[in-house]
Amino acid sequence: MPREIDPTINEKSFILDALNQKLRIDGRDLDSFRELELNFGDDYGLADVQLGKTRVLARVSAEVVKPFTDRPFDGIFTITTELGPMASPAFEPGRQTEQEVLLSRLIEKAIRRSNALDTESLCIVAGQKCWQIRADVHFLSHDGALVDASCIAVVAALQHFRRPDVSVEGEKVTIHTMTERIPVPLSILHVPICVTFSFYLDGEVCLVDATLQEEQLRQGDMTITLNKFGELCQIAKAGGLAINGLNLLRCAKIALVKVGEIAATVQRRLEEDAAARVRRDNLLESKADNERA
């Protein structure tokens, strides 16, 4: 079975030594993210997030299905994540590791369970037809902070996605093609962003956006999910070093700042992409709210 090599004794003691002096290997501050690069695909709903050498691709797609019988007024939203050998040779296809389960549950909780997507708006005919929105997350390269990167990718892809418009006349449902009617954006209630903290030296040092090497050496980690209004969606801490309340508060404060920055970047990139699309496809005329002379 392919395995990642653990950091050597030299690397281990050096990294911890450097952290003790508040130095990181890549020269970042303890509480700073790597440069976030966010790109969108040619069609709607494809977001490519690069956080340093970590790279995650999220793809959102929609399909008309029958809703669950116990929830006839709700659409369906699923997120699938799979760690494959493309991200790292240590990941095997088809076999779920503990890391993978934790990761998918974290993202699920951060986005789906926090009601980021309004599933009621996905209903077409109650009990008969609804939209199923599916977000597929692909991990292309693994250098730490997979949770943070995939959360950004999914929320960006959801905001970028447009579903075909539908019209209902009695029992008859018409799905209009993208060219026939302007596709509709999803109704997003809020934008949750995850920030993962890694703890070292018995909680004295806490890092934001740890690289793979740093992740391998950490004593514990904690993920805080917030939206830009500062509403807390989850605090996830699966084992590891115990931290005190003061530290938790400090982390939450850092997270709030980081979430604001990331949400702003995502928003800016979305606007840039929309502007580029208008130029490319000459969409100005098709806007409903265009200025009339």
């Binding site: 990642e4 090599i5 050498k53 970590t54 991200a87 790292s88 040779p89 240590a90 390269s141 693994h142 250098d143 730490g144 690289t211 793979l212 090497q213």
Partner: peptide, 12 residues
């Protein structure tokens, strides 16, 4: 293990 330069994930 003879690790290569291949970062971020070392193949060996």
């Amino acid at each position: 293990a003879i690790p290569s330069s291949n970062s971020p994930v070392p193949s060996a």
